[in-house]
Simulated scan of single mutants.
Amino acid sequence: MATSSEMTAPDEARGALSALPAGPAGVLPRQDIRRLVACGMVRAEGGSFAESQFQPASLDLRLGRKAHRVRASFLPGAGKSVAQMLTDLTQDEIALDEGAILEKNCVYVVELMETLHGLPATISAFANPKSSTGRLDVFTRLIADHSAAFDSVAGGYSGKLYAEISPSSFSIKVRTGSRLNQLRFRRSAAGDEAEAEGVRLSDRELRDVHAATPLVDGAAQIRNGLMFSIHLGADEGEIIGYQAQRFTDVVDVDRVAGYAIDDFWIPVRARRQRLILDPHQFYILASRERLHIPPGFAAEMAPIDPSMGEFRVHYAGFFDPGFGAGPDGLPGSRGVLEVRSHEVPFLLEDGQIVGRLAFERMAAEPDALYGAIGTSSYQGQALKLSKHFRG
C-alpha cells in the first residue's frame, strides 16, 4: 500500500505547504492532515503512515520502540525537554519491538513514532485517548517538549511527542506501532492567540445547529455545551453497565474480540433506576440520549462541573463528524461513559446530568465521515465495551 507521503508529488507538497496556514478557523479534517504529512510538518519514524491512522478529524499516534517506567508523572515546563526529564525520572527501560506488558498502577512514558516540524503559528494540536483506550481504563496523555499542559501542542511547535501511559484496571500488552491516543489540529484566526476563538460554538449557535440537524433524540439541554445524562432506567435486572474486575489477565491492546466479557467485567443490572458508585472503581455506562455529530462539526467530552458531583465520566473524549448518524439521519448512538467516583460513594439516578459535549467547527467537512471508514468501531452503539471483548 502506498503511504500518504508517497501519494503526493513534491510540487503538490509545496502547494499544500503554502495553502495550509491560511483558511477558515476550525478543526482540520483528515484531507488537511494528509497535507500536513505531505509537506513534512507531520513526520513518522521510517517515513510511512498507515491509511487507517487518518480518522475524519484526527490522526492516530503510534508507540515507538521503548517505554520508560518513571517514578512520577511530570510536565517539562519551559526550557526543558521530555528527554531531559526522563534522565532523572526513569526507573526502567522496556523494549517494545516484540511486545511488552505495562503493569497497572504504574506510570510509563513512550516516545511516539510521529513528530511535528514547523507547524504554522496559527495551527495548534490537542490530543485525547482513543475510545478503546478509555474503555480499558488506561490513562493516556500527550506530552510535548517545553510544555506546561498535557494533551496540548502550541502553534509553531517542532519536536518529538510522547505518551504518558498509566493502566488503572487491567495491565496491558503493547508493542511498537500500538495506538493509544490521537491528535487533532486546530486552525485559529490569523493573529489570534486564543486557541479556540472563532472555533468553539456558543450556546446560541449550538441551538441553531440542533434546530437544523438534531444533535440528540429529544429536547437538547444546552448550557455551556450540550448536556447529557445517565441511562439507568431499564427493566429490573437488565444490564445497564459493567464494573471492572480487580484481578484479571493482561489485555493485548491490538487483539480485537479476543477476550470474554465475564473474565474482566461484572455486569451491573438495573435496580430502582439508580446506582451507587463504589469509590475508585471503574464503570462503563451509557448516556440516556442518542447522539449525532453533524458533518461540519467535531465534539469533545468536556469536564463536568465539580459542584455537580465528585466523579468523572470520560477518559476518551473525541467525537468525530458523522458519529451517531442513524439510517434515517436522526441521532442513533449513545455516548459510552467511562465513570469513576472520587473518594466517597456517589449516588446516580436515571436521567441525572453527568457531562457535556463542547462543539467546534470543522475547517472543512472531512472527505469521509465516521461510520464510512473501516476503523469506525462504535457507530450505532448502545452500551458497548471496548472492541477487545466479544459480544
Results as ranks from 00 to 15, higher is better:
Ala78Val: 03
Ser58Met: 10
Gly79Asp: 04
Arg135Met: 07
Ile94Ala: 02
Leu142Arg: 00
Arg69Phe: 12
Leu136Gly: 06
His117Ile: 07
Tyr108Ser: 01
Ala78Tyr: 06
Ala67Pro: 03
Ser58Tyr: 04
Ser152Lys: 11
Leu116Lys: 03
Leu59Ala: 10
Asp137Lys: 10
Ser131Thr: 13
Leu63Asn: 01
Val110Trp: 00
Val109Ile: 13
Tyr157Ser: 10
Phe74Asn: 01
Thr122Ser: 11
Asp88Met: 12
Ala125Phe: 12
Gln84Ser: 15
Leu59Ser: 09
Gly99Leu: 07
Ala100Ile: 05
Lys160Val: 03
Gly79Ser: 09
Gly156His: 11
Leu142Gln: 00
Leu89Gln: 14
Lys66Gly: 02
Thr87Phe: 04
Phe139Arg: 11
Val109Cys: 05
His117Asp: 15
Gly159Ser: 05
His68Arg: 09
Ser158Gly: 14
Ser147Ile: 02
Val109Ser: 00
Ala149Leu: 06
Glu111Arg: 14
Asp151Ala: 03
Gln84Ile: 06
Gln91Gly: 13
Leu136Tyr: 04
Lys130Ile: 10
Arg69His: 10
Asp151Cys: 03
Ala148Gln: 10
Val70Met: 08
His117Pro: 04
Ala95Arg: 11
Ala144Thr: 12
Asp88Val: 12
Val82Ser: 10
Val109Arg: 00
Ala125Pro: 14
Leu61Pro: 00
Glu98His: 11
His146Phe: 06
Thr122Leu: 03
Leu119Met: 13
Leu112Cys: 07
Pro56Met: 05
Arg69Thr: 09
Leu142Cys: 02
Ile101Met: 13
Val153Gln: 04
Thr122Ile: 05
Pro129Lys: 08
Ile94Arg: 01
Arg71Val: 12
Glu103Ile: 03
Val138Gln: 01
Val153Ser: 04
Leu89Cys: 14
Gly99Pro: 12
Gly159Asn: 04
Asp145Gly: 15
Val153Leu: 07
Met85Val: 05
Arg135Ile: 04
Leu61Ser: 02
Ser58Ile: 09
Ala125Trp: 06
Glu98Tyr: 08
Ala127Phe: 05
Thr140Lys: 00
Ser132Ile: 05
Leu59Asn: 08
His146Asp: 05
Ser52Phe: 11
Ala144Asp: 04
Ala57Leu: 09
Gly64Pro: 09
Arg141Lys: 15
Asp145Val: 14
Arg62Asn: 09
Pro120Cys: 07
His117Gln: 14
Gly64Leu: 10
Ala125Glu: 12
Glu93Gln: 15
Lys66Ile: 10
Leu112Ser: 04
Leu63Pro: 01
Ser131Phe: 06
Thr133Asp: 01
Glu93Tyr: 12
Leu86Asp: 04
Gln91Phe: 08
Ser73Cys: 13
Ala125Gln: 14
Leu142Gly: 00
Ser124Val: 05
Ile123Ala: 11
Ile123Glu: 10
Leu119Phe: 07
Arg71Met: 12
Pro120Met: 05
Asp88Lys: 14
Val153Met: 08
Arg69Leu: 13
Ala67Lys: 01
Leu161Gly: 02
Val138Glu: 01
Leu75His: 02
Tyr162Ala: 03
Arg65Glu: 10
His117Asn: 15
